[in-house]
Nucleic acid binder design. Structure first.
Length: 674
DNA sequence: AGCACGCCGACT
DNA sequence: GTCGGCGTGCTC
């Protein structure tokens, strides 16, 4: 009996434990760590991953495994270790991380892979595939020297992190050269991108060069397609893997380099369990696998910049390679003198530039990051603001559709007719959206060809591309857009770029709002630069360091001030945050749990001897979403391990479980965004 | 997460 | 008298 074999299995369920099973006789010796198996848990048959083989004598009854789904392990020792570390770091079940890392895990039965024709890939274009092994600019040859350091790390298996701080175009030029170099030495490369829709040009550039040796991986592919890519990556048929955050777990054969493109971008953080950050997991993987990680961005995250300053990351780029800057002027819109007489949305300088561009047919592009006509609608009689009945947030009036829209849940009601509170019929349409800007411009410049690109005007991507094409071709005089226009549209050259309300990202309840403003403004500055446009930045916060640094062409200034402020206020990267999201269908119940959490957190903090702070609790934005009332609170401290301990203790106090009376509590380590 | 067990309201 | 609501607890 003593030669019975036991294994531990992790299942993709929200239970922290692993479960022990007996290996049935017919599978003796064949069930290895990392294998996918099925087993009964309760009366359900589940697919799980074998994560260990320690026998346990303390269990009253152990059940046998049902089946071995495929003979060879799907996770090797290194990937098991990575997924375990990710689970520990993000305080989520190991099984859920394993499920995120193996596309077929969700499936009940495994079918051996057969030849399938439908692998989506960027087509080979031999005609355009001009080999360009010699980089064109002197900057690039300079960069190649820096890349020697990176490639050296790749060859000797050093899991170091490099921050590539360069403009988008320069990075894009370098990637095929870099990847080709790695491939020449028989290695594979993993590119992580924040989202598929905005990485079109990178895909094109890599696809042109690597064709059928490259694949695109993301969660919107069918499971069968994901499985196929997973298999081909492991078999070494695919050498260049491009994918969104879940691709960080792909088993790339002889992986030699991980690139995280636009490493500052928000979508790397998954907002459901397992709540991991693809960029940070890339760093963990690089360290474990002895593979260098290249974090790349024109506007790196404050975290990464600090890591460079601390000597933890190597810097490639930065000051020796200055960001190209457009000619830019900042207009303080608080000063009445600066505002145009014709419309309070524009400064007189911007209006005259737009007028000039219309006259000379040289085109103008205006940015405002707010959809709709007016951002709030208020009754003039009682002062009540129209709010969404489910989210309780102000509704945005859309003039084109003549309706009120909730930008959070998408609910739509007709144009306001009478106030819900006092039945008044006189409304004030406050706040500026792109539709209002368009209306004002049409009044100011009758006869000019003025169009708009945003989520509402461009129902599909081809439609947006057509508008961009018409603008580039000179068929549109003034184009007004939300950030939508920065998402890979080819706008050609134009003379004037205007940014309205450059402060709109600031003053959000999020310690990263300044960083976001900096990133958006930088993006627009580089767009203006590429177009050869003169940029006018209109703002109510001209002295904010995000505005000052971008407009002075001194990004370093932003990081300097921002790091100082974060340190003074005790925010990341100078501390660790762990957020608790509390949500449920009944408000009273949610608030009860929130109060329990508040007092629990106070106890935990008292035990921690003042090294841990509590932020909140406060209602989430929006407070109601999908029929659930949402609150959150955070624990904060300088020592990660202490914050983790405090979070574990707090969870214990809240019942040890993640759910109490219909109210769910979920833990979010290193949260991103308010 | 499921799926049971279990103890209270409106139906054949 | 039961059918069924979803609160609480367990799964190797």
């Amino acid at each position: 009996m003593s030669d019975r074999q036991y294994v531990q299995v992790a299942f993709p369920i929200p239970i922290r434990d692993v479960f022990t099973y007996v290996v049935p006789e017919y599978l003796q010796g064949r069930v290895l760590s990392g294998c996918q198996v099925t087993a009964f848990l309760g009366r359900r048959k589940l697919s799980g991953i074998v994560v260990g083989s320690e026998p346990r004598e303390d269990l009253p009854r152990v059940r046998p495994l049902e089946s071995l789904v495929r003979p060879e392990p799907v996770f090797d020792a290194q990937m098991l270790r990575l997924t375990r570390e990710v689970a520990e770091h993000y305080m989520c079940p190991w099984g859920e991380v394993l499920a995120a890392g193996y596309p077929a895990h969700a499936q009940k039965t495994w079918r051996p892979s057969r030849e399938q024709a439908s692998v989506p890939r960027v087509p080979d274009r031999p005609g355009e595939g001009v080999r360009r092994d010699q980089p064109p600019h002197h900057l690039e040859s300079e960069l190649l020297k820096h890349f020697e350091l990176l490639l050296g790390a790749s060859r000797r298996g050093a899991g170091e992190v490099f921050l590539l701080h360069l403009p988008d175009e320069l990075r894009e030029d370098m990637y095929p050269l870099l990847a080709a170099e790695v491939l020449n030495h028989g290695g594979g490369v993993l590119f992580l991108v924040p989202e598929i829709s905005t990485s079109g040009s990178l895909l094109e550039v890599l696809g042109r060069r690597f064709g059928s040796r490259m694949a695109l991986f993301h969660s919107r592919l069918r499971i069968s397609e994901r499985k196929r890519i997973w298999e081909r990556a492991r078999a070494g048929e695919l050498k260049v893997l491009v994918g969104t955050r879940s691709a960080v777990f792909l088993p790339v054969s002889n992986l030699k380099l991980i690139v995280v493109e636009d490493e500052h971008a928000r979508p790397f953080k998954q907002e459901e369990t397992p709540r991991y950050n693809g960029r940070d997991v890339a760093g963990m993987r690089g360290r474990l696998a002895g593979v260098p990680v290249l974090l790349a961005s024109a506007t790196p995250s404050v975290e990464s910049v600090l890591s460079v300053k601390r000597g933890e990351f190597h810097l490639i780029g930065g000051a020796p390679f200055p960001m190209p800057m457009p000619s830019v002027s900042v207009v303080d819109m608080r000063k009445v003198d600066n505002r145009s007489q014709d419309s309070d949305q524009f400064s007189s300088s911007l209006i005259s530039l737009i007028r000039g561009s219309i006259q000379t047919r040289s085109r103008a592009l205006l940015f405002l990051n707010r959809r709709g006509f007016s951002t709030w609608v208020q009754c003039r009689d009682c002062g009540a603001v129209e709010t969404c009945s489910t989210c309780e947030l102000p509704l945005v009036f859309h003039s084109q559709e003549k309706s009120l829209l909730c930008h959070h849940c998408g609910s739509r009601t007709g144009a306001p007719s009478s106030c819900k509170k006092c039945h008044g019929t006189d409304f004030r349409f406050g706040g500026v959206g792109v539709q209002k800007v368009q209306a004002s411009l049409e009044k100011l410049f009758p006869g000019a060809r003025i169009e708009r690109v945003d989520l509402d005007s461009a129902r599909s991507r081809p439609e947006a591309l057509r508008v961009a094409e018409r603008f580039a071709g000179g068929d549109i005089d003034v184009l007004i857009g939300t950030i939508f226009v920065t998402k890979g549209l080819k706008l050609g050259r134009f003379a004037v770029a205007g940014m309205l309300h450059a402060e709109s990202q600031l003053n959000l309840p999020d310690f990263r709002s300044g960083e976001r403003a900096f990133q958006l403004l930088s993006e627009i500055a580089s767009l203006a630069q590429a177009a050869g446009a003169e940029l006018v930045v209109q703002t109510l916060n001209p002295e904010h360091h995000s505005v000052v640094s971008v407009c002075a062409g001194e990004p370093g200034l932003f990081y300097e001030v921002e790091l100082k402020q974060r340190q003074e206020l005790g925010y990341p990267p100078f501390s660790t945050l762990i957020a608790f999201h509390i949500a449920g269908p009944k408000e009273a119940e949610v608030i009860r749990v929130v109060e329990t959490a508040r007092s629990g957190a106070a106890c935990v903090v008292a035990e921690g001897g003042g090294r841990i702070q509590v932020l909140g609790p406060s209602p989430a934005v929006p407070m109601r979403s999908r029929g659930r009332f949402r609150w959150y609170a955070s624990l904060r401290g300088q020592e990660r391990s202490e914050v983790m301990d405090a979070a574990r203790k707090l969870l214990e106090r809240l019942g040890g479980r993640h759910e109490v009376a219909g109210v769910t509590i979920s833990v979010d380590v290193d949260p991103v965004g308010g």
